[in-house]
């Protein structure tokens, strides 16, 4: 008995193409998961990042790169309204999640965050919860009580985060017993379990060793059929390896981050449009 043709990977396989060719190869028609228009984030009136416009496409990984201070993380945190708790922070411009205006009057930030997941620099599983409870924490926050749905989501997300095989027998064990890399994958699973439309990753491998980093990078490639990924990284090789498109940010003269170039990753790293991008890439690659 064959599986129904459901995931893009299945579909691609069935017509003899790679997933990339099916979806990334058709930019003009690919759906936009998130659109940023002239987005500016200010703290106490001072802009940290200004006037950013680009689109993040479905089933793609979009990387935000640039030197430190260029506002990558600040920009990323604007996309799920994490700046809301900082009183001096203000976000202007437009962020659209599908048809939802992220900063719209009728948009609830709590509800929005169940549609836009986030993975942080340092693994931050909830240490007092078991692995299982970590995986379903987001579902419980969002009011899901049905055991079958929780179990299904936990397994699916742990499988997707390449953690299921190693933890299936110890789901009741505290999350703090996992290694750093496993903890970060648990955090990815935790975010995936809510089935967000977009997953924001803020330098997810910066606290990990090279082997754990490699596993997360592989994971990112596997996940993009499931969720649109926007990743901040300071590591250009990583951006090249994992992303389909890149947004290059740079700190301007007034110490405010600006978007210099947004392009497909292959184009940005081989023949960028902006000379500053070239300088940065060359500087980095020696």
């Amino acid at each position: 008995m064959t599986e129904p043709l459901t995931t893009p990977a299945h579909i691609a396989q069935s017509i003899g193409l790679t997933t990339e060719e099916v979806f990334v190869g058709h930019h003009a028609g690919a759906a936009k998961a998130m659109r940023l228009e002239n987005v500016t984030v200010t703290f106490g009136g001072r802009a940290a990042v200004r006037g950013v416009t680009f689109d993040a496409y479905q089933r793609e990984v979009t990387a935000l790169i640039g030197p430190s201070g260029s506002g990558k993380t600040t920009l990323l945190r604007a996309l799920n309204r994490m700046h809301d708790t900082v009183r001096s922070a203000a976000v202007t411009g437009t962020v659209m999640l599908g048809d939802t205006d992220v900063y719209g009057r009728s948009t609830d930030p709590t509800l929005l965050r169940s549609r836009v997941g986030m993975v942080f620099q340092r693994p931050n599983p909830f240490p007092t919860m078991s692995i299982y409870e970590n995986a379903v924490a987001g579902l419980r926050f969002n009011g899901v009580r049905k055991k079958s749905l929780l179990d299904e989501a936990a397994e699916s997300s742990l499988v997707a985060a390449a953690l299921w095989d190693s933890v299936r027998d110890r789901l009741k064990v505290h999350a703090s017993t996992l290694s750093g890399g496993e903890q970060q994958r648990l955090c990815i699973a935790r975010a995936l379990a809510v089935e967000p439309e977009v997953l924001l990753m803020d330098e997810p491998t910066s606290a990990l060793d090279p082997i754990a980093t490699k596993r997360i990078e592989e994971l990112i490639g596997e996940l993009k059929d499931r969720v649109t990924i926007i990743i901040v990284t300071h590591n250009m090789q990583q951006a090249m390896r994992v992303s389909d498109r890149c947004a290059f940010l740079l700190m301007g003269e007034d110490r405010t981050g600006e978007l210099i170039e947004f392009n497909s990753t292959s184009k940005l790293f081989s023949e960028p449009d902006d000379p500053r991008t070239l300088d940065y890439i060359n500087g980095r690659f020696g």
């Binding site: 129904p4 043709l5 459901t6 995931t7 579909i11 017509i15 099916v22 979806f23 058709h26 003009a28 028609g29 690919a30 609830d108 709590t110 509800l111 169940s114 549609r115 579902l139 969002n142 009011g143 899901v144 749905l149 299904e152 989501a153 699916s156 809510v194 089935e195 439309e197 499931r226």
Partner: peptide, 28 residues
């Protein structure tokens, strides 16, 4: 765009996403 389209109700992930978002929205 590829001419292949798929029914979202058949995709377990899409259907789960729809279910979760429904519960989240109704409980918010």
């Amino acid at each position: 765009m590829s001419s292949i389209s798929f029914d979202s109700s058949l995709d377990p992930i899409l259907s789960r996403r729809a279910a979760i978002q429904k519960i989240a929205a109704s409980s918010i």
